[in-house]
Computed example of a mutant assay.
Amino acid sequence: MLLRGGTSKGAYFLAEDLPADPSSRDDLLLRVMGSPDPTQIDGLGGAHPLTSKVAVVGALADPEADVDYLFLQIGVDAAEVSDRQNCGNLLAGVGPFAVERGLLAAGDGRTSVRIRMLNTGDHAIATFPTPGGRVDYTGSAGISGVPGTAAPVVIEFPMGRRPLLPTGKVRDALAGAPVTCVDNGIPTVLIAASALKVTGYEDPGDLEGDPALAGRLREIRLEAGHLMGLGDVEGSTVPKLSLLAAPLHGGAVMTRTFIPVRCHTSIGVLGAASVAAGLRIEGGVGQDVARLPEGHVGRGGAARLRIEHPTGFLDIETSIEYGAEGAAPVVRRTAVVRTARKIFDGTVFPRSTDTAPLPARHSWTDPRTPPLRRR
Rank of each mutant, 00 (worst) to 15 (best):
G133T: 08
G133E: 14
G133Y: 09
G133N: 12
G133V: 11
G133P: 07
R134H: 15
R134L: 13
R134Y: 08
V135P: 15
V135C: 08
V135D: 13
V135F: 13
V135M: 11
D136A: 15
D136I: 09
D136V: 09
D136K: 10
D136W: 08
Y137A: 12
Y137G: 14
T138K: 13
T138R: 15
T138S: 13
T138G: 14
G139T: 06
G139N: 06
G139C: 09
S140A: 14
S140V: 07
S140D: 14
S140E: 14
S140Y: 01
A141N: 00
A141G: 05
A141Y: 10
A141Q: 08
A141W: 12
A141R: 13
G142C: 07
G142F: 01
G142M: 06
G142I: 02
I143G: 07
I143D: 02
I143Y: 04
I143L: 10
I143T: 07
G145R: 04
G145T: 08
V146P: 05
V146M: 14
V146R: 05
V146C: 12
V146D: 09
P147L: 02
P147Y: 00
G148T: 01
G148C: 03
G148H: 02
G148M: 02
G148W: 00
G148E: 02
T149C: 10
T149V: 10
T149Y: 05
T149E: 11
T149P: 00
A150C: 12
A151S: 13
A151T: 10
A151R: 05
A151Y: 08
A151N: 11
A151I: 07
P152G: 02
P152N: 07
P152S: 09
V153E: 01
V153K: 01
V153A: 13
V154K: 01
V154D: 04
V154W: 00
V154H: 13
I155K: 00
I155V: 15
I155H: 00
I155M: 14
E156L: 00
F157C: 03
F157Y: 15
F157W: 07
F157N: 10
F157R: 02
P158Y: 10
P158C: 05
P158T: 12
M159L: 06
M159D: 11
G160Y: 13
G160W: 02
G160I: 05
G160P: 14
G160D: 03
R161Q: 13
R162L: 08
R162E: 11
R162G: 06
P163C: 09
P163H: 08
P163K: 04
L164G: 03
L164V: 03
L164K: 02
L165H: 05
L165V: 05
L165S: 09
L165M: 09
P166C: 07
P166A: 03
T167W: 03
T167Y: 09
T167C: 05
G168W: 05
G168H: 04
G168T: 04
G168F: 03
G168A: 03
